[in-house]
């Protein structure tokens, strides 16, 4: 048995931990609070923390002035779309690697991960030119293609680690029961792997949602997701803190909630299994 920890020590440690936790979280909290201020209050000195006139005006202005909802839906379409297409391509591949491995499987997997490590600038010019010529710039499809490809290695990898945990017996049983390969994957493997597939989906939506190299470089207005939209606030004439905060709050809230649910998957997905 571990020795009993003195309550006093626990109180001190807790206080320090809470202080650090709140400090790290503060910019997010501050953004949230500022989004309910008027522009005047937002830049007021000394800053107002809780005692100000709360207003929802910023949220309305952000929508009416810049069609916020369109950028939000661009983010949803590209993040969800690329994740689903990625899953459709990755599920069969991960099945093959997990249940019918060959001597080369490990190499293929590592090679796939290595493509994730390719710096984006290394291929910025050709991708930009190809997209320009194929008229894919500033389109949903173009962005979905790019996001699918950059996240595909992580999707394959995560699914592979989840599939490895499913006993082969059960898949063989389905083969004995007369299931074709397609039926085996649809009726047996996929339902069993749903928790794993769901976590993979969650993490990849987060990654795609926050992707800020290709989204900034390949979109301008029509297909611009929230990353690019928020970036437009960097210009000096766009310095409206309360509106920036309202737009930011809406942009990070859904992903923050998803992220909190996917802490464990984050470790699994982003360390490629090197940390357990």
């Amino acid at each position: 048995m571990a020795r009993t920890i003195s309550t006093r020590r626990k109180v001190i440690v807790s206080a320090i931990a809470w202080l650090i936790g709140l400090t790290l979280f503060f910019p997010i909290l501050w953004t949230f609070l500022t989004s309910f201020k008027t522009e005047g209050t937002a830049i007021a000195m000394p800053p107002r923390f809780l005692f100000f006139d709360w207003t929802l005006e910023n949220y309305q202005t952000v929508q009416t002035r810049s069609n916020y909802f369109r950028h939000f839906s661009n983010s949803v379409i590209t993040a969800v779309g690329s994740t689903i297409i990625g899953l459709i391509i990755a599920i069969p591949a991960a099945w093959a690697m997990a249940f019918s491995p060959t001597k080369r499987t490990k190499d293929v997997l590592l090679w796939m991960l290595s493509t994730k490590m390719l710096p984006a600038v290394g291929v910025l010019v050709p991708i930009y030119l190809i997209f320009r010529d194929l008229r894919l710039l500033d389109t949903h499809i173009g962005l979905i293609i790019v996001l699918t490809m950059i996240n595909l290695p992580i999707i394959v990898w995560m699914l592979y680690t989840y599939f490895k945990e499913i006993p082969v017996d059960i898949l063989e049983a389905s083969r004995m029961d007369g299931a074709s390969l397609r039926q085996e994957i649809i009726y047996v493997l996929t339902p069993m792997a749903i928790p794993g597939i769901a976590s993979t989906m969650l993490l990849n939506i987060i990654l795609a949602w926050n992707e800020a190299f290709w989204t900034l470089n390949l979109t301008t207005t029509r297909a611009a997701p929230l990353t690019a939209f928020i970036a437009s606030y960097s210009s000096p004439e766009g310095l409206f803190w309360a509106k920036l905060s309202a737009a930011s709050t809406l942009a990070i809230a859904p992903i923050l909630i998803m992220g909190w649910f996917s802490q464990k998957q984050l470790v699994r997905g982003l360390t490629f299994g090197a940390v357990k």
């Binding site: 006993p167 017996d169 059960i170 063989e172 049983a173 389905s174 083969r175 004995m176 029961d177 007369g178 299931a179 074709s180 009726y187 047996v188 339902p191 069993m192 749903i194």
Partner: peptide, 29 residues
């Protein structure tokens, strides 16, 4: 292929489909 041999197999681990009810398991073939 095993599916076309019209044989049934009972595995050591039973290999039941964990996401299906007993009815679903038996009905599967």
């Amino acid at each position: 292929a095993p599916a076309q041999r019209k044989l049934s197999m009972v595995f050591q681990s039973y290999a039941l489909y964990p996401h299906m009810s007993v009815r679903g398991n038996i009905a599967f073939p």
